[in-house]
Design a protein around this nucleic acid. Structure first.
Lengths: 259, 259
DNA sequence: CGTAGTCTTGAACCGCGTCAAGCTTGGTGG
DNA sequence: CCACCAAGCTTGACGCGGTTCAAGACTACG
């Protein structure tokens, strides 16, 4: 069984929770999602307005310009937000990880495409009651503000990457971002070398980074050739020297996420 | 007197309001800034915690990593948010226009440089009382959420520009953005051809667009040569055919801002 | 075993960056 | 009033990084 299959299996295990009656108290993103600050009684309100949906890799969650009668959170898996020009050029503008929020209260037309990159379990809140709750209880609105400000910061880092980094720096930055996220979630595997799963195809990475898929492939090969990374299959990467990778990313420091 | 000088004079007139005791009720951004939804009594609270500061073109408002003991709104003028790599490569990540908000409640270290691009009058709120108000009254927090979501949308359009547009399309897009903003503010000059002021130097435009200043200059010259725009001095532009300009920008529609 | 999706690699091209020179404009001081 | 200077801008020549086009390899799956 490949590491990729293992990852998909893990997602499957989580997605068995999708048949409606799941308790928020047991939710894996209970303290990181939009509901993070909610009290027990507020959770009960949310449970009344929520339902789960599962999406397969490549499947659209919403289409640009489409009406969206729900908002909600990614429970497991990865989804991408993309914008396109008429002639088909595509740029990813958001990467939704577990606990990230999709949809804007008080606007029902989606401004970009949302597409499942892996299997995704999505916790939907019906729009109307959710908007009502935004008005009446401060905890949800406050948490959503925090999360939106964080996303704005991330978008601005991303703009620096798109506007000013070289192809090599973009690839190294992307791997660094994924590595930090996985390190933050998973219990440290002690001693063993850091290994990560790429949740995106080469093409999706290209759309993330403002490159072509050929350039992505070439730069990954170059980093491998020079020993900065090692490949395990196509989608898993071992990082023998994280500091070296960060150097290649062009950023000034490792942000303190990893010793 | 050049159009640029006229613009600066207008800013000067506004900035005479900076000596502290200005009433919020008379503020030019009263219904667009973070205070937009506030009632009279809430305005009184805000007046107690506010003070004005003026900045000259090129002057820093805050420096990345610096402590910021205030948050606030641009009253008049234009400021830029920029991020830089160690080797000096610079990317603009935000363009602050009148009514835009600067600073994040509950974080006192600025994550990017904010620099005045023109003369700027800035309405500062002392951090502590402002944060207190965020907690106690819903109107300010709610408005800030709206504004942050709008900024996030703008940042994502910007990412599409940075990642996927050509130099020519970037320039055309930038002029379009500025033109729409000026059209939204100023009373329609009836009949006369549309004329706009660029609030940025060629270098600042380059930092906005992820280009070099030479490329910016060349593309502006090319658009002029082909009759898409006309130059009035270096900083003012006449748009004889707005639809043509929008075509050059690569966007699929004019967004309905202008007939 | 064949086929489709994904990825890699090569060769040629070109858009934009780099380097460099010169222009325009406004301000300063003789 | 003119000489000088600095800041901002324009233009040209050249080269490189990344795109484009094309061919082929690897893997999963029927």
């Amino acid at each position: 069984m490949t590491t990729r299959e293992i990852a998909l299996t893990q997602i499957n295990q989580k997605s068995t929770s999708q048949d409606g009656g799941e308790r928020c108290g047991d939710c894996p993103i209970r303290y990181r999602a939009v509901c993070a600050h909610c009290e027990t009684d507020e959770l009960a309100l949310l449970e009344d307005m929520k339902f789960y949906r599962a999406f397969e890799p490549g499947q659209p969650i919403v289409w640009e310009g489409e009406r969206m009668d729900f908002v909600g959170s990614v429970v497991s898996g990865v989804a991408s937000l993309t914008q396109t020009l008429e002639d088909g050029r595509t740029q990813m503008v958001g990467l939704l990880l577990p606990s990230d929020f999709l949809g804007r209260p008080s606007r029902d037309i989606a401004p970009y495409n949302a597409i499942a990159a892996t299997k995704v379990v999505f916790c939907c809140f019906r729009r109307k009651p959710f908007e009502q709750m935004m008005r009446t209880t401060p905890h949800v609105a406050h948490r959503l503000l925090e999360m939106t400000l964080d996303e704005l910061d991330a978008a601005r880092e991303w703009m620096l990457l798109l506007g000013r980094k070289t192809a090599r720096e973009k690839i190294a930055s992307f791997i660094t971002i994924i590595a930090r996220r996985e390190a933050a979630l998973q219990k440290r595997n002690p001693g063993g070398r850091m290994q990560i799963e790429l949740p995106l195809t080469r093409e999706a990475m290209a759309d993330y980074l403002g490159l072509t898929l050929e350039t992505v492939s070439r730069q990954i090969s170059a980093l491998k050739r020079e020993g900065v990374i090692e490949l395990v299959g196509k989608r898993a990467i071992i990082l023998p020297d994280f500091a070296r990778l960060v150097e290649e990313s062009g950023d000034d420091s490792d942000g303190g996420y990893l010793s």
